[in-house]
Design a protein around this nucleic acid. Structure first.
Lengths: 176, 176
DNA sequence: GACAAGGTAGAACGATCGCTCTACCTTGTC
DNA sequence: GACAAGGTAGAGCGATCGTTCTACCTTGTC
């Protein structure tokens, strides 16, 4: 990705994060991006492309954010993951998970749905790898999504509850 | 609420449920409602009012749906609740929780935020009452929100995981 | 110093948006 | 049978939407 495009994607992510997907028009996006309308459309030829570009940019950024100072697989790795999630939500996600937001704003959009599918599979795989317990991957993913989704409603309590439940099921031994 | 208004609210809920909040314009809402534009605006004088009207209508409907055949408080009541949630999502919520959808479609809207706050508090109270364990109310609410939010992404697996985690923490004894 | 690549600024397009308005029809009441 | 209440049908408002376009300005390369 060339650097102008990357810069634009980064700004787009920021606008969608703070303003949602439905409310800002392309004029507002352009102003926030700081480039001309023509340049914006050169790299992202429609509003839909801007949305999907922002999602992919966020995904890459989130994965490397999670990986910082990552301990070896096991319960500590999951605790660390939820700690990173708390930092992420605080810093970058006032309105919750960007993917879920996009999906609910454009329920009929195929591009958004595909991007979300990919995001989901990679995260479930991540849960399996980092917990070391494949059978708990779905439950851990649910806790992750639940915490992100409930964040705009109950804030840090969402992460706290999710982490606490994660520890319980990881210590439970019985993997059902 | 008079019956015309109630009928309109019911149809509005249906449209927002299936089509989201951002995509349908007032013209589409009117067509789905089956009333004239003038009548629609008589009862809900703006699109925002239509959104909030639909949310309140859904809330009442959801609470009485959950209450059907409700067992006495305890673990069975929570299991029953997640069973009802599964039925609800299957029948009425292809794109997840209507409140979360509204909140993410209009992150800046005060009316939507207030309605969601009220919804949240009533559900947390419900969790406390039905589990009989006030200290688990937040965690149970998180599981409920997580299941609703993850539903469009992983479907019934979301409810299954949430219910299974709920049983684990209710049986765990240690309420942290 | 000609030229292509890629940038800015912003006018203008047709379509659609939320919303208001006029004109008329039905129904129940006195 | 006059009248108010509340309904339908749908044209039309100004504003905004996503998108395209023209016109001009850099910058690096041959």
């Amino acid at each position: 990705m060339n650097s102008t495009k990357e810069h634009i994607a980064s700004r787009l992510e920021q606008v969608f994060t703070t303003r949602g997907f439905a409310e800002p028009g392309v004029a507002e996006l352009q102003k926030a991006v700081g480039a001309s309308l023509r340049t914006l459309y050169r790299y992202f030829p429609s509003k839909e492309a801007m949305v999907i570009g922002a999602l992919h940019y966020r995904h890459d950024r989130y994965l490397s954010f999670l990986a910082e100072n990552e301990p070896p697989p096991g319960i500590d790795s999951i605790i660390h993951l939820f700690g990173r999630l708390a930092d992420w939500m605080t810093a970058y996600a006032p309105h919750g998970c960007l993917y879920l937001n996009a999906l609910t704003s454009f329920p009929g959009n195929a591009g958004v749905r595909d991007a979300t599918e990919q995001y989901k599979h990679e995260l479930i795989q991540l849960m399996a790898d980092r917990s070391g317990q494949k059978s708990l991957a779905n439950e851990l993913f649910l806790l992750h999504e639940g915490a992100s989704a409930a964040w705009p409603v109950i804030g840090m309590q969402a992460i706290h509850s999710a982490k606490s439940v994660a520890v319980k099921i990881l210590n439970g031994g019985n993997n059902e």
